[in-house]
C-alpha cells in the first residue's frame, strides 16, 4: 500500500507499507516500523493522530498474497517485521473459515520484539506456529538462540512432497537464507514466493 505525505510547501514523498489486515472492504491496517532517522515513519508513528488525512493508494501487485481457492498446504516463513504480510494471510484464512493447513515459522530477535504476540498465542485451528529466536529466547526454551536453519525448517514446516506454497518475507539476509534452505531441502523454486524489506 502506498502512503503519500505532502508538506505545506507542496513537497511530497511516498513510501510503501505492507497490509496486515484481511480485506473487508472498509478498513485497512498497515504496520509501520519506526526508523529513528526516517523521513516518514517517525511522522506516522509519533505525529499522525485520528482525524488526520493521508493519501493512500493500492494495494497493487497480487503476487505475494494467499487466495482461499488455493487448496495446497501453506508454509509461511517470517523474519522480524516480515511477519506483516503473512499475518494478512493468516487473518484472511480465519475470515473465510478456511481449513487449508498453514504452518508458520517466525524468526524474531527476542520475545520482546515479537509482533502480533497475543493474536498468535491465541492461535487458529490448523495453523501451527514455530518460533525461532536469533538473539535471546524465553526462559527454558528448548532451542538455543540462533538463525533459522535446515532443522528448524524441516521440523516446523511441510516436507517438499506435500508441495506447499512457501511465502518468505523478511530482511534480505533472512530471505536469502530461508529461500536458499527451502530449495536445498527440495522445495520447487516455482512454489517459493519472496518479499523483502530493505
Amino acid at each position: 500500500m502506498d502512503v503519500r505525505l505532502t508538506a505545506e510547501d507542496g513537497y511530497s514523498t511516498q513510501r510503501s507499507y505492507s497490509v496486515a489486515s484481511a480485506p473487508d472492504g472498509e478498513t485497512v491496517e498497515l504496520t509501520v516500523q519506526r526508523t529513528d532517522d526516517g523521513e516518514v515513519s517517525p511522522y506516522l508513528t509519533d505525529e499522525l493522530t485520528v482525524g488526520d488525512l493521508v493519501e493512500l493508494r493500492g494495494p497493487v501487485g497480487g503476487w505475494f498474497v494467499w487466495r482461499p481457492e488455493q487448496k495446497e498446504p501453506v508454509f509461511l516463513l517470517a523474519g522480524g517485521s516480515g511477519l506483516v504480510p503473512l499475518m494478512a494471510m493468516i487473518r484472511m484464512r480465519r475470515a473465510v473459515g478456511s481449513r487449508t493447513p498453514f504452518r508458520l515459522i517466525y524468526s524474531a530477535r527476542s520475545p520482546e520484539t515479537q509482533l502480533f504476540t497475543s493474536e498468535l498465542r491465541r492461535g487458529d485451528p490448523g495453523l501451527d506456529t514455530t518460533y525461532v529466536y536469533t538473539r535471546s529466547t524465553p526462559p527454558q526454551w528448548s532451542r538455543p538462540a540462533g538463525r533459522i536453519d535446515a532443522s528448524a525448517i524441516s521440523s516446523g514446516g511441510w516436507p517438499p512432497d506435500f508441495e506447499p506454497t512457501c511465502y518468505v518475507c523478511g530482511s534480505t539476509g533472512f530471505v536469502e537464507t530461508a529461500a536458499g534452505l527451502l530449495v536445498a531441502l527440495g522445495h520447487h523454486p516455482g512454489r517459493i514466493r519472496t518479499e523483502r524489506f530493505g
Binding site: R4, T6, R15, V183, G198
Partner: peptide, 29 residues
C-alpha cells in the same frame, strides 16, 4: 509533515526518495 531537506545536486523523479543502501527485491528464490 515537513519532510527532509531536499538534495539540490540530484533530481528525484516524482514520489521517489533517496537511499544510500542498495535494497534487494525479487519475487522468488
Amino acid at each position: 509533515f515537513r519532510g527532509r531537506a531536499r538534495d539540490a545536486l540530484h533530481q528525484l523523479p516524482p514520489g521517489q526518495y533517496e537511499t544510500t543502501g542498495f535494497p534487494v527485491l525479487s519475487a522468488g528464490p
